[in-house]
Nucleic acid binder design. Structure first.
Length: 845
RNA sequence: GCGGGCGUGGCGGAAUUGGUAGACGCGCUGGUUUUAGGUACCAGUAUCGAAAGAUGUGGGGGUUCGAGUCCCUUCGCCCGCACCA
């Protein structure tokens, strides 16, 4: 007997690098935009180049890769690119801490991470790689920014920022912890600075309506965006101070409840409250107290309603002689609506809590049923539908009719008008930092704010910058900001703010479609590739990144640069990779140990260093602080890329969290070898049909295709295991050869290195990566024998095997003939027999 | 508080439209091979029971010939948030 290559174990390390090189040389993952094949654009959210990939990246990119490789096998021309979200603070922090230049640090990280991604064998089109910190990329971004400016979608205004007086820098909200800068610990000041804004609010309705077309987005994400946009319709109207032309402007979504009003409440930072506070010290105190309260949602919700009576009253717009007290209240927000509300306690829980506390009247104006008495009892406001009562001319109307009637009257009489409010605010894009896209504008005393002429783009970041002193290096650079005004030629200064990094990620998917040197993208190429068929990433980007990207796409369509409105046809948000933690209590602190430091058996965990047990904690997201991490590079070295990829796809549904387990990855490693041995069972020239196996083979092809298209990788994996077992058990035949060949192709998107190695050994043409997906023989999908469940009173008593398609009467007869069934019936009168053809028979007595 | 999601063996999870609950993987038990460990292979593995059989999808109730799936109710866990007028 001669030895074959299958007699030795599959050597993943050798095969991985061999086939990665072969794919590179064949350039088989480069998308050809002139291809006649239908296109498919598969995209995963591009990473921040932190220096090392983590297991979450591996999961994300493996899913996209399986889909991309599968689509290619199905005859699509696939665009599956990769790039780097390369601007941002960590590079500046590294510059400050280690004295390295942000650019050098970033490009080193990119090189390291790219090598890691290559080790996983991803079918990426590296010819389209981009980094957002590349002047070519951000130069085009500057040009787009100017286009938006010229279309009136960019403006400047004064706005408050979090200013760290020690680091002399602006902090993002999440960098302010308990009112102090996260790095310096200094108390953060609110400063007013001129900031650049993008008019996302102009697209609020479009972005909201567009959600309705995104059928293949998770409902959860659409709902989050809908809430974020926060559209509400109502009435804006004025409550005049008694005997005055001055008044308080109020916004309400419940104009129908106006006759139930019992007070007016304004926010602590409402101008009228501020003004009064100047000469009412106790009010000033109250306002200060309001501001001290917590800001988290839970704290706000449970905080007691508090108010301070201003001493002023206002007239009810519908009845001049009806006066309402004006309070400053802690539950009214200045930055929503007008910063003032009228309180209708019977039909709003907050107002009711407030009214009970300050003993204000509570009048029922909406009846849920036939209750009509004016006095509203109880502590639960009624917010449902109903008929208006106790409301003069509104009484008898429905809530909706009354809303319309009050708005119509307000507009007719001139004291208010219908209005739509949004929670969405314009997007502030100014960052007072170095490592970002310079905002391409020049400030000239004579000409004002002037865009940099496009032929002078990119406005490049200066390379000689100093991070040893706090503050924005662009601002104190000796020469960079001093320029001539492009209009008058006089002395002028460059804008020193850079763009929010979310701008970088708002159009990168367009640049992937084409990369001309002289413009951001080619409209025809964009039209060919867009939209992205499948976008995959983390749920943490549900709102900001995805909303901004949708906005940029619409804005670019608005200025006529492209013809798409929604960039991502389908969105998939994958779960996290989790692991249990190992720790020991050390006085007040918890000391954590990494999985590598611990020996885990089925009944406990032992620290290798001292042989003593450690506590096994909850299964949570992998994080450095809890040390429950595994390094992708280590596990690839140990098990090979295919085993790691297979693990990422197995067991857990992709939208759920995936618990990492040592025994799980070992099982995957074993399966790789098991398949390799199975490939070795292929017998050239074997003949004969094994119908059962052939059926299983074709059913599996169809099922795996369906599962991959639904991104249900865990189910596809289970199917492949089943077919593998069946093929292992079968005797040599042509059908068995077909099963083996089929398994090889089905796992090819998931374990591409193993597939190539087997493909070559079995004499396949070309590369497995370029092979076609196996054809399904529809005739073999149909079972000729089925198992029929036989129930008595709905309980399973027996199963029988019968030819498919037997008529009801025959099934009934077969069921009644069953000995087990007869024993169960025990002579009782059969009243009814329910037959579900090819499935079950249920006998009712 | 509001909104959303989820509860199925020791674990991750399967289960078309309401039609054989627990596919598949991990783990575990027993056996075979191996100098041994690992690997590989075979058998078993929801619970109770010697068996026949009974019970079983967080708990309780309902609809139905039949419920993991539909309805009501209740408990627990997870995620998101904005007191949005």
């Amino acid at each position: 007997m001669t030895t074959t290559r299958f007699d030795v174990r599959f050597d993943a390390g050798q095969a991985d690098s061999r086939w990665q090189k072969a794919w590179d040389e064949a350039r088989c993952f480069e998308a050809d935009s002139n291809s006649a094949r239908p296109k498919s654009y598969v995209l995963e959210m591009f990473p921040y180049p932190s220096g090392r990939i983590h297991i979450g990246h591996v999961r994300n990119y493996t899913m996209g890769d399986v889909l991309a490789r599968y689509k290619a096998m199905r005859g699509f021309e696939v665009l599956h690119p990769m790039g780097w979200d390369a601007f941002g603070m960590p590079a500046e922090n590294a510059a400050m801490e280690k004295g390295v230049h942000p650019a050098g640090w970033t490009y080193d990280n990119i090189a390291a991470m790219k090598a890691q991604l290559k080790q996983l064998g991803f079918a990426l089109d590296w010819s389209r790689e981009l980094a957002t910190c590349d002047p070519e990329y951000y130069g085009h971004e500057q040009s787009l920014f100017i286009d938006l400016y010229e279309a009136g979608l960019v403006y400047r205004r004064e706005s408050a920022v979090n200013w760290d007086p020690v680091d002399m820098t602006v902090l993002a909200n999440e960098q302010v912890i308990d009112g102090r800068g996260w790095r310096s610990g200094a108390e953060v000041e609110k400063r007013k600075l001129n900031q650049w804004f993008l008019k996302i609010t102009q697209f609020a309705d479009e972005l909201l309506d567009g959600l309705g077309t995104l059928k293949n987005w998770p409902d959860k994400v659409r709902l989050m965006q809908e809430n974020w946009i926060g559209k509400s319709k109502g009435l804006r109207c004025t409550f005049h101070f008694v005997d005055s032309t001055q008044g308080i402007e109020v916004f309400t979504t419940r104009p129908d409840t106006m006759f139930g009003a019992s007070f007016v409440a304004i926010a602590a930072d409402h101008p009228f409250a501020q003004e009064q506070a100047r000469h009412v010290p106790r009010l000033a105190e109250f306002i200060a107290e309001c501001k001290r309260g917590g800001t988290t949602a839970a704290e706000l919700e449970t905080a007691e309603k508090m108010g301070f009576f201003t001493g002023y009253s206002v007239e009810h717009p519908l009845s001049k002689n009806w006066h309402l007290p004006v309070y400053v209240a802690n539950f009214v927000l200045m930055d929503y609506g007008t910063g003032a509300v009228f309180g209708c306690p019977a039909h709003d829980q907050r107002d009711l809590d407030f009214a009970r506390k300050y003993e204000l009247p509570v009048t029922r104006v909406v009846a849920d049923g036939d209750q009509t008495e004016a006095e509203f009892r109880g502590d639960e406001a009624y917010t449902g539908p109903g008929r208006i009562v106790n409301s003069e001319w509104l009484s008898g109307m429905s809530v909706d009719e009354a809303k319309a009637a009050v708005i119509a009257k307000a507009q007719h009489d001139g004291w208010g008008q219908g209005e739509t409010q949004y929670r969405l605010r314009d997007w502030g894009v100014s960052r007072q930092r170095y490592w970002g896209t310079p905002i391409p504008f020049i400030h000239c005393d004579a000409c004002g704010v002037v865009p940099v002429p496009k032929d002078q783009l990119p406005v490049k970041l200066p390379e000689d910058v100093d991070f040893s002193v706090p503050g924005n290096p662009l601002q104190r650079h000796a020469t960079w900001k001093h320029v001539e005004c492009p209009i008058c030629g006089g002395k002028a200064e460059r804008e020193t703010d850079t763009l929010d990094t979310f701008v970088n990620s708002s159009w990168y998917f367009l640049r992937f479609a084409s990369q001309p040197a002289d413009k951001p993208f080619d409209a025809a190429e964009v039209a060919k590739w867009m939209p992205v068929e499948q976008y995959i990433g983390g749920i943490e980007h549900a709102i900001l990144h995805l909303l901004y990207a949708r906005f940029w796409t619409r804005a670019l369509a608005h200025v006529g640069l492209i013809d798409v409105t929604e960039p991502f046809a389908s969105l998939f948000t994958q779960g996290m990779v989790t692991h249990e933690t190992y720790s020991r209590r050390d006085g007040p602190r918890e000391l954590y140990f990494s999985p590598a430091e611990v020996d885990r058996s089925s009944d406990g965990a032992i620290l290798k260093a001292d042989g003593q047990p450690v506590e096994i904690g909850k299964v949570i997201k992998m994080s450095k602080s809890k040390k429950n991490v595994v390094d992708p590079e280590d596990i690839i070295a140990q098990y090979g890329a295919d085993a790691v990829r297979w693990f990422m796809l197995s067991d857990s549904p992709p939208e759920r969290d995936l618990p990492w387990s040592e025994s799980g990855i070992e099982g995957c490693g074993r399966f790789v070898q098991r398949l390799w041995r199975l490939f070795g069972q292929y017998q050239d020239g074997a003949t004969g049909e094994d119908r059962k196996l052939a059926q299983k083979t074709h059913q599996t092809i169809a099922a795996v295709a369906q599962d991959i298209e639904a991104l249900a990788f865990n189910k596809a994996v289970a199917r492949i295991y089943e077919l593998t077992s069946a093929a292992e058990k079968a005797a040599d035949s042509a059908s068995r050869n077909e099963a083996i060949r089929t398994i090889l192709l089905l796992v090819s998107p998931m374990m591409p290195h193993l597939a190539e190695e087997g493909w070559e050994a079995l004499g396949g043409n070309g590369l497995a990566a370029e092979a076609d997906w196996p054809q399904v023989d529809e005739a073999l999908l149909v079972e000729d024998e089925v198992t029929i469940a036989i129930q008595h009173m709905g309980k399973l008593r027996d199963t029988i095997t019968a030819a498919k398609g037997l008529p009801r009467e025959e099934l009934e007869a077969l069921a009644l003939a069953s000995e087990k069934v007869q024993r169960s019936i025990d002579g009782a009168q059969v009243r009814k027999v329910i037959v579900v053809p090819d499935r079950l028979v249920n006998i009712v007595t």
